[in-house]
Design a protein around this nucleic acid. Structure first.
Lengths: 167, 167
DNA sequence: TTAAACTTTCAGTACTTATTGAAAGTTTTG
DNA sequence: CAAAACTTTCAATAAGTACTGAAAGTTTAA
């Protein structure tokens, strides 16, 4: 396979992976493009490379910056903004984990707590519901906690975690 | 909050969580409903409770069964099929992790390997691309490996993992 | 074997989400 | 200050995804 073809394939794959994870395709593609680019890119560069509109590029770049996985860069003497992806993969994974926890897991935990707090009623259905959601609350809280623990270490957490799990 | 209201809130929340994770809303809602139901439910029951059509119920139940997190049950002397959710949360999480690894992570790893295998060219761009995708390949492989390790234990893996990580 | 009781399939349609592009906004420079 | 060079916003629309419902398929019982 040749460079241009490989690059394109990578961007497509990363993009479709994004959609499966609830991240929009363009956002994931921009991220992929920035990750494998040797140089920082301008919005114009990104629009051209991915064949997307200015508005689309602008909105998704902002989202990536909100997630903390893309940075703005300025070249001395130039007005135009350039963009670069977080280069450290540990850091990237940590930021994604943190963001998803904040946006999805934490709110779910809150709802689980809330709904499992209904008064204990006499009928079996309500009792079962209460028990089951309480169990879920416990489980999801622990899982979230584990995620925090795993990604707490700044350097090489995957390797360290695997090592610990093997002991 | 009262039982019916709590139950509804839980189903809605679980459903929207589903969409954020690339699982369709109805599929997640059916799963939620089955999880908190004290009794097994028929397709008719599910259609009525969630206000969905027969076709929708049928397709999403099949998908849940494919994932291995919902089972068919038969009542003696009855023709009709009933459905129940996997009750053990450890088992549920393990099956979801396994399925997502198979469907998403493994194919991504394959592409990463493929694209990082381009011939080393002389220009800087291609060299950078090769290096970056190779790094990603390494990282994602390790992460997938870690997921396998974590969910390998059948009982109480969250607790065990947290315990190990604290040591 | 036929009818009844049920489930699955899928073309059409509804709904949701992403994208465009032009107008409005912002910053910089002369 | 005005114009140039750029970015952001958002209403309209396109694209993608899920849902319906009726017809076809399957299984069971008589």
């Amino acid at each position: 396979m040749e460079y241009v073809e490989a690059k394109n394939k990578f961007i497509q794959t990363w993009g479709s992976l994004g959609s499966q994870w609830g991240i929009n395709k363009t956002m994931a593609q921009i991220h992929a493009l920035l990750m494998v680019s040797a140089e920082v890119l301008s919005m114009e560069d990104i629009m051209e490379e991915l064949h997307i509109s200015r508005g689309n590029a602008s909105m998704n770049l902002r989202a990536l910056i909100d997630w903390g996985i893309v940075y703005k860069e300025y070249k001395p003497g130039e007005r135009r903004e350039y963009f670069a992806a977080e280069g450290n993969l540990d850091e990237l994974a940590r930021k994604i984990a943190k963001e998803r926890s904040k946006r999805e897991i934490k709110p779910t935990i809150r709802v689980l707590k809330e709904v499992s707090d209904i008064a204990t009623e006499d009928h079996q259905q309500a009792a079962h519901f209460k028990a089951k959601t309480a169990e879920l609350y416990d489980f999801v809280s622990r899982a979230d906690n584990m995620l925090e623990k795993i990604t707490a270490q700044k350097e090489n957490w995957i390797t360290k975690t695997i090592f610990k799990l093997m002991s």
